[in-house]
Write a protein that binds this DNA or RNA. Sequence first.
DNA 1: TGGTAAGCGAGACGGTACGTCCCGTCTTATC
DNA 2: GATAAGACGGGACGTACCGTCTCGCTTACCA
Lengths: 203, 203, 203, 203
Amino acid sequence: MPKTPDATRRSDRSRRAILDSALTLVGEVGYNKLTIEAIAARAGVGKQTIYRWWPSKAAVLLDASLALAGDAETEAEWTGFPDTGDLAADLKQVLRATVDQFNDEKYDAPTRALTAAGATDPELGARFTEQLLEPQLALYEARLRTAREAGRLAPDTDLRLMVEMLVGPLTYRWLLRTAPLTHAYTDALVDRVLGGVANVTAR
Amino acid sequence: MPKTPDATRRSDRSRRAILDSALTLVGEVGYNKLTIEAIAARAGVGKQTIYRWWPSKAAVLLDASLALAGDAETEAEWTGFPDTGDLAADLKQVLRATVDQFNDEKYDAPTRALTAAGATDPELGARFTEQLLEPQLALYEARLRTAREAGRLAPDTDLRLMVEMLVGPLTYRWLLRTAPLTHAYTDALVDRVLGGVANVTAR
Amino acid sequence: MPKTPDATRRSDRSRRAILDSALTLVGEVGYNKLTIEAIAARAGVGKQTIYRWWPSKAAVLLDASLALAGDAETEAEWTGFPDTGDLAADLKQVLRATVDQFNDEKYDAPTRALTAAGATDPELGARFTEQLLEPQLALYEARLRTAREAGRLAPDTDLRLMVEMLVGPLTYRWLLRTAPLTHAYTDALVDRVLGGVANVTAR
Amino acid sequence: MPKTPDATRRSDRSRRAILDSALTLVGEVGYNKLTIEAIAARAGVGKQTIYRWWPSKAAVLLDASLALAGDAETEAEWTGFPDTGDLAADLKQVLRATVDQFNDEKYDAPTRALTAAGATDPELGARFTEQLLEPQLALYEARLRTAREAGRLAPDTDLRLMVEMLVGPLTYRWLLRTAPLTHAYTDALVDRVLGGVANVTAR
DNA sequence: TGGTAAGCGAGACGGTACGTCCCGTCTTATC
DNA sequence: GATAAGACGGGACGTACCGTCTCGCTTACCA
């Protein structure tokens, strides 16, 4: 019963090499042509070392993305969701940063691959959502809750719905490539989400 | 010399059988385990007949979805985007119908597969967007334009942005499975998009 | 019942083009990589035109070789097996000519291909032997019969056996490439066949 | 970089199964309808395991024949080319055994297939000749050398030529099926090779 | 401090599907 | 009705990876 390997003996060197190779390769050849064999070869690692610790290439990529996200936070000296008191400004700042990430090939390729794979594979999707997506959405939600408590949003505001109104359209454009992602776009989005689109004067 | 085959001699019987098989199989085994070989076998067709007319299984599925969409319109005696004069009501009706489609396994599997594949493969994504998505978005846009001209929306309303504010969040929930899709959800979405979420009384 | 096509309507132009293409191609790519499709394309002919008149590519090649043999006789102004009265000299002359043919790539490729195919496919082999080989062997046999009647060979000589003693070793060397084919070789062969190899003085 | 596999880790079980399957199948369906896929399936082996170790089905069959020849020698308790002092008798004995082999379907099919394939494919032919044929011819040659040294053959006898005079006609009949193979035939052949066919009394 | 059991790089293995080539048949339009 | 052209259902090709399975080798931990 060789089920559970001994994690204390795990080679961190190999783990890192595998995650690095996975990220590099997914950028080079895309998710569909990404193979475990290529990752192993590039990492100078036996295939079994990958199969021992991950159930699928998608899982490898998920871990790689988590590591990437962790690195990014560190690099950017991320200090939490901004709260200047000006909700619109804070949201615009964060969404602009997200746009920049989506436009950065380094983040785009693996994230896009994972999102697509998660859409098709429910189990992977669940892990992707839970580990990568939800933590980010929770930050939005917390900021919105503060705003609601401060009376800047209606007391009955559905915070979750509002989060999706912010990230949904952006994600839509990004995934489906219907139009380029710009700061102007997300700025307008924030304004419209907060203010609505109905003609107030006409009411 | 890409050796373009003679389309006039194409077997319509085989074409239909291939598209049918593709739709059936993607529902049975999912996109990742869908194989050209299985499609050919199920359709009683040589593999070459598929490769002659389509460059990839994704392309087959795209054509299959187009056929499916065409059939669906016919079946539902679709008479165009509703325009009762009540914009909110019209949008809610259409989005409810979309929710129903997303909740119908028959449409969900191929559409999800295509969307995911398109996110990963730019060329396919372009065709998917252009042939399947844009025509639908254009209908929304037309209805919104009517509303704007009728003064129900601000004259400077960015129609495209607004369309994405409606379909973006819905698509987001559907693709990422962050929460179940319900009529109540889209109804609330329409209200918030039209009315905004900022606390008006607090202004 | 499209069994027997009408031979009187047959296009001689196509027939010739097919046989020519077959000979050319077998020299270029070898028998195993020779395909009906390539012959048809090279000949500017529909595949069906080949299938209508020949049962297999081997049969095409057999006809092509028959035509080639006919041409060769005409070219060489062949006037029948020589009979100068000197049996050894006559045999040497004919075998030298055969050696020359075997060493001529133009004849070697198709003949070798046919011989090999015939060895594997009994039906083809029968036709090959009957139509191409036997007529030649019969010429040897006739010359030997003349010699036997003239008392140059023992009255009980098995002519068939003797023919094979002449062409067998030569064919063996040619097919199996155990050693180069030279005039000296066949000259020695004739001498030894006629004289035997046992040490006469030791009797 | 031809990626030579590590022969020390080769599975002998698979090797044997492949050679066995190849021999069985070539007897069942013939060489032309013998497929690598069928060999693999019959042997319970992946196709790649065949392609890893052999370049073609002909090469597989060559190895299979070598194994078969080895087995045959062992079975027959082969103790070397006979040397009773009576050259004619010894040759007749060996040629009779060869006739029996050629008439044994079990040996005929693979040997015929290999000979034909070797005639067409020079590289294979070289290996076939070198590994299977030459060792046998060398035995003849050794026996003849003994006879020559014993004064039973003329001192200037071309041993190689004489070997071919013995096996050439036999192989010719076998390959081209011009006549049935019998012991009487090879007996007569030996007599005529040793004694010649010229009418001695007429000298 | 030497024995042993785990993780490791390497890669052979039984398999599945790939995308291509060609088979022999069938259909269409031309002559 | 034979022909040039070529689409069709089918089978095998040789390749790429899958996920599993030994191999020796290195590297702790334990006796």
